[in-house]
Design a protein around this nucleic acid. Structure first.
Length: 488
RNA sequence: GUCCCCAUCGUCUAGUGGCCCAGGACACCACCCUUUCACGGUGGCUACACGAGUUCGAAUCUCGUUGGGGACGCCA
């Protein structure tokens, strides 16, 4: 074994929605660390959640990371001897490893139902203790297990955690982290649908893919001891761990789509340059030193050290991001400016999608820009439209918008038929007149009373920008500025 | 609630025992530049959470308190 192990790191996003700015943050630090040490950066898709994973999301994640210029050495579309890189294609591997643990008695079958588990947790919550599995099936005899298996009773496989002693690991950023084994849960490793949980798949894959450093977000700190226990159960050498601070909302809570735009597609749509976003992210919890704020990814590589990471969770401040973006914009060459406007704003793809809706509403092309600004803009100005219908108050509109943003969060696919269904259902739920809902939404989304059909327009404006405008308008209503007050 | 992590201007941060009655940047305010707006320039505002130690000396080390966050899923 060579003294210096090759640096291999990975990001392991789960394809459950729009590519997240947190993924980009973790990707950047992984990428920089890998390249600094001449190592490899891998992309692994963790799609073991069969109910939430969707294939369109994987493509968007890859597209967004490429937009940022964070390119992986191995991944779903760049196979290697370590592949495949989609966990759903590795289920045989996880089964085999589960068998190994079962054989060595490091894991056991559990036949408890979800209902029983809920009951146990509820009791523990009332008692004020950490909720955990009560180990009901931990000591089932081989005969009992065989009996249940014979009757095809659904089961999961759980890790048999040691009940005494201490598990500790070294976090490259914060030092030793310790936790008493007695506090740790017998984690589910293999779900009843045959898919592995994150914990199993992650450890198995990191080992098989020869990952040297696991660089991930702080939210994983508490489950790291479980992972350590797994490495021990397998008899594998564990990688080094480094937990990055969590990006935060303005109120310091973990960054969330409810309080912040988090989709990379939103920032792209909002005209943030990839190099600006990367530079900004590089200033989250880390800095170049000497009061230097602007630096390239290459420059970051030269100076990056785990020890320089500052652990206070940084607030993701889009105002400062915008300032930084402006700096990059002003430095653009003529060629890249033309290129950007043509390819990012008036892209062929977008214009084609717009054509059926905008062309028939024009008689001269001079109207194009003026009539259709809202398809290209970010935040809108509401000082010329009456977004508050007669009989409604600003607070009611605010609540209506906020409520709708919540509903729209769960919308699986951003498509006009589905939008129509959701919004109409919402209208019925709050029992508002159609006009009060639809006209208001039209004005909030487009900034005008006349526009192409509402749902088609929303589809074209896009999920992130639509949600942003609804939220932005609600905020304007809350602050009492930026909209036309109804005549009294 | 239990455990884990964290703690410098409103925000991003510099600071690893004396160079700090704390530096830079965003935001904000004022002024300058300017036919407008923006850019740019100058200045201003504003922070070491608190309390005990250790030390000749603490933002920096220790302990406690408080505050914030995260985790407690057959989600990742």
């Amino acid at each position: 074994m060579s003294y210096f192990k090759k640096v291999r790191v990975r990001i392991a996003p789960s394809p459950t929605g729009d590519p997240h700015v947190g993924t980009a943050y973790v990707a950047l630090f992984n990428y920089v660390f890998a390249k600094k040490h001449g190592g490899d950066f891998l992309l692994r898709i963790e799609d073991t959640d069969q109910v939430r994973a969707k294939s369109s999301s994987e493509a968007m994640i890859m597209k967004s990371l490429r937009w940022l210029g964070v390119e992986w050495d191995e991944g779903p579309d760049k196979n290697s001897s370590c592949g495949p890189f989609r966990q759903s294609e590795r289920t045989a591997i996880y089964r085999e490893h589960t068998e190994m643990l079962l054989k060595s008695k490091s894991a056991y079958h559990c036949f408890c139902t979800a209902e029983r588990l809920d009951g146990v947790r509820a009791k523990q919550r009332v008692a004020g203790v950490t909720t955990a599995y009560d180990r009901h099936c931990r000591d089932l005899s081989a005969g009992e297990v065989a009996g249940f298996l014979g009757k095809s009773i659904p089961y999961v496989v759980r890790l048999k955690m040691p009940t005494t002693g201490m598990t500790s690991f070294v976090d490259e950023i914060r030092g030793v982290v310790e936790i008493e084994n007695s506090r740790m849960d017998d984690q589910v490793l293999l779900k009843s649908d045959g898919y592995p949980t994150y914990h199993l798949a992650n450890v198995v894959d990191d080992h098989l893919m020869e990952i040297s450093h696991v660089i991930r977000a702080e939210e994983w700190i508490n489950s790291t001891p479980k992972h350590v226990a797994l490495y021990e159960a397998f008899g594998w050498e564990r990688p080094k761990f480094a937990h990055l601070p969590l990006l935060r909302n303005a109120d310091k809570s973990k960054i969330s789509k409810r309080k912040n735009p988090v989709a990379l597609t939103y920032y792209q749509r909002a005209g943030i340059l990839p190099e600006a976003l990367l530079n900004f992210l590089g200033n989250m919890g880390w800095n170049y030193g000497n009061d230097v704020e602007f630096f390239t990814v290459e420059e970051m590589m030269a100076k990056f050290e785990f020890k320089d990471i500052h652990l206070g969770g940084p607030v993701f401040d889009t105002v400062k991001l915008t300032w930084m973006n402006q700096h990059y914009m002003h430095k653009m060459s003529e060629a890249s400016f033309v290129d950007y406007v043509r390819n990012e704003i008036f892209s062929t793809e977008y214009l084609k999608a717009l054509k059926p809706f905008v062309l028939e509403r024009m008689s001269r092309f001079e109207q194009f820009v003026g009539n259709n600004m809202f398809f290209f803009n970010g935040a809108l100005d509401y000082s010329d439209v009456e977004i508050i219908p007669k009989g409604k108050t600003d607070v009611e509109i605010m609540d209506m918008l906020t409520g709708l943003v919540e509903k729209l969060d769960d919308l699986y696919e951003w498509e006009h038929e589905r939008l129509k269904a959701v919004i109409e259902a919402y209208k019925d739920e709050i029992a508002w007149k159609p006009k009060d809902v639809f006209m208001t939404l039209r004005m909030v989304a487009t900034g005008r009373k006349d526009s192409p059909p509402l749902f088609e327009s929303l589809e074209l404006i896009g999920r992130e920008m639509t949600r942003f405008r609804f939220r932005d308008c609600a905020q304007k209503l809350a602050s009492g500025t930026g909209f036309k007050k109804p005549a009294v």
